[in-house]
Amino acid sequence: MAFALHDQLAAERVRHAVIEGDALDLAWPAPWQHRLAERNLAAVWMNYRALGYRRLVYTNTMSVLHAGELAAAMGDDPVVTAILLTADDSTARARLARREHGDSLAVHVQRSDAAARVLEESLPLDVHRLSTDGRDAVHVAREIRGLWLG
Rank of each mutant, 00 (worst) to 15 (best):
1 M>F: 13
2 A>G: 14
4 A>D: 01
8 Q>K: 15
8 Q>A: 15
8 Q>P: 01
8 Q>M: 11
8 Q>G: 06
9 L>F: 06
9 L>D: 00
9 L>P: 02
11 A>C: 11
12 E>G: 11
14 V>G: 03
15 R>W: 03
16 H>M: 00
17 A>C: 10
18 V>F: 09
21 G>P: 06
21 G>W: 05
24 L>E: 10
25 D>I: 04
25 D>Q: 09
27 A>L: 13
27 A>Q: 11
27 A>S: 09
28 W>R: 08
30 A>Q: 07
31 P>E: 11
31 P>L: 13
31 P>D: 10
33 Q>P: 05
33 Q>A: 10
33 Q>M: 11
34 H>G: 02
35 R>F: 10
38 E>S: 14
39 R>H: 14
39 R>G: 10
40 N>D: 01
42 A>F: 04
44 V>C: 13
45 W>S: 04
47 N>S: 14
47 N>H: 11
48 Y>P: 00
50 A>Y: 09
52 G>A: 02
52 G>Y: 01
54 R>S: 08
55 R>C: 06
55 R>M: 07
60 N>G: 13
60 N>Q: 02
61 T>V: 08
66 H>Q: 01
67 A>Q: 08
69 E>P: 00
71 A>Y: 11
74 M>G: 11
75 G>M: 05
77 D>A: 14
77 D>S: 14
82 A>D: 06
84 L>E: 07
84 L>M: 14
85 L>F: 01
86 T>M: 08
86 T>Y: 03
88 D>F: 01
89 D>N: 06
89 D>Q: 14
90 S>I: 07
90 S>A: 13
90 S>K: 09
90 S>R: 11
92 A>Y: 06
93 R>D: 05
95 R>E: 15
95 R>A: 12
96 L>M: 12
96 L>F: 10
97 A>Q: 10
97 A>W: 08
98 R>D: 05
100 E>N: 07
101 H>T: 09
101 H>A: 12
101 H>L: 04
104 S>D: 09
104 S>M: 07
105 L>A: 12
106 A>I: 05
107 V>Y: 04
108 H>W: 11
110 Q>C: 00
110 Q>M: 04
111 R>D: 02
112 S>I: 00
116 A>E: 01
117 R>N: 02
118 V>T: 15
118 V>P: 03
119 L>G: 03
120 E>H: 14
120 E>M: 03
121 E>A: 15
122 S>K: 15
127 V>A: 15
128 H>I: 13
128 H>F: 15
128 H>E: 14
129 R>P: 05
130 L>T: 08
132 T>I: 04
132 T>F: 01
133 D>I: 03
134 G>P: 01
134 G>K: 11
134 G>F: 04
135 R>Y: 09
137 A>V: 06
138 V>P: 03
138 V>K: 06
140 V>W: 02
140 V>R: 03
143 E>L: 10
143 E>K: 09
145 R>C: 11
146 G>I: 04
146 G>S: 12
148 W>I: 15
148 W>S: 14
149 L>T: 00
